[in-house]
């Protein structure tokens, strides 16, 4: 008799705990289901907003007859670890990766989500000076990366953008007049095409924010909210299993005649 009553007290405590955690978490669990369904339904391609994206083919180096190497500038950088040469918009570009000294003004590679101990500097292979992406170059790069039917609809300077949370800017935003209102972002320091965004992006962005409880939009997948909610959901599941086991034991899942 005493055994039965203590067991029922324990189970009552368990049910109460399950309910209280559920009270805190139920909306988030529903959000996880809806956003998870959306991610799965859209797939990686659908989530990338690259409907009209065209990967620019790399240009062969032999198309340039001569290269002006920025020897002095490279030496001034100090501890250079690598120098890469490629062609961007028909102009040779030198990209030096180096260990920065303590003076301010060093740049990191755009589109790199993790912090790198290295800084990057870009030089024009025709003048030997620092690379500068002009608005005209940015427009050409954007048009070449675009496959849609829309026309060029303007270009503007941007210092940074929430649409590319890890990008520090500055650069250009090139708009196209199409059904998705596509915009293309170009990094000014490197001439790199960061990617495309369109009308679908705000919804996708909010799906990410809600799924990962990262309301800042900085794509911090290890924030305290999500860790706390994750641990609570484990506890919710464990108490749920124990309650289901109890109902099973009591014959709650046996069909009544």
């Amino acid at each position: 008799m005493i055994g039965n009553s203590s067991r029922s007290i324990k189970m009552g405590w368990l049910s109460s705990l399950h309910r209280r955690i559920a009270l805190v978490l139920v909306i988030q669990v529903i959000i996880w289901c809806v956003t998870g369904f959306y991610f799965s339904w859209q797939g990686r391609e659908g989530l990338s907003t690259q409907e009209y994206w065209h990967q620019l083919p790399a240009q062969p180096l032999h198309t340039k007859e001569r290269y002006v190497t920025p020897d002095l500038q490279l030496q001034n950088l100090g501890n250079v670890r690598s120098v890469r040469v490629r062609i961007i918009d028909n102009v040779a570009q030198f990209e030096a990766t180096y260990v920065p000294n303590n003076t301010p003004g060093h740049q990191q590679a755009p589109n790199r989500s993790k912090a790198s101990p290295y800084a990057v500097a870009w030089f024009d292979g025709e003048t030997g000076h620092r690379w500068q992406t002009s608005a005209l170059t940015a427009q050409r790069l954007a048009v070449n990366s675009y496959l849609g039917a829309g026309m060029f609809n303007g270009i503007r300077d941007v210092h940074r953008s929430d649409e590319f949370p890890h990008w520090v800017g500055p650069g250009f935003r090139v708009d196209f007049a199409d059904d998705l209102n596509t915009r293309v972002y170009i990094d000014q320091a490197s001439g790199e095409v960061l990617g495309h965004r369109n009308n679908r992006w705000p919804l996708i962005d909010w799906m990410y924010r809600l799924h990962f409880m990262d309301y800042s939009g900085k794509r911090d997948f290890n924030n305290l909210f999500i860790i706390f909610a994750g641990l609570l959901s484990v506890w919710l599941s464990i108490t749920g299993i124990l309650m289901i086991a109890r109902v099973w034991k009591q014959g709650g899942f046996v069909a009544k005649r």
Binding site: L61, H62, K64, Y67, T69, D71, R81, S82, R84, R86
Partner: peptide, 29 residues
């Protein structure tokens, strides 16, 4: 990799490009 100390090797890029016409990117390390 150690630091690049001889930037004069970059003068050879044209020769590399002519020797390998498919080359689109060359990195000195």
């Amino acid at each position: 990799d150690r630091s690049v100390s001889e930037f004069t090797y970059l003068e050879n890029i044209t020769s590399v490009a002519n020797e390998y016409p498919d080359a689109t990117e060359v990195t000195l390390v």
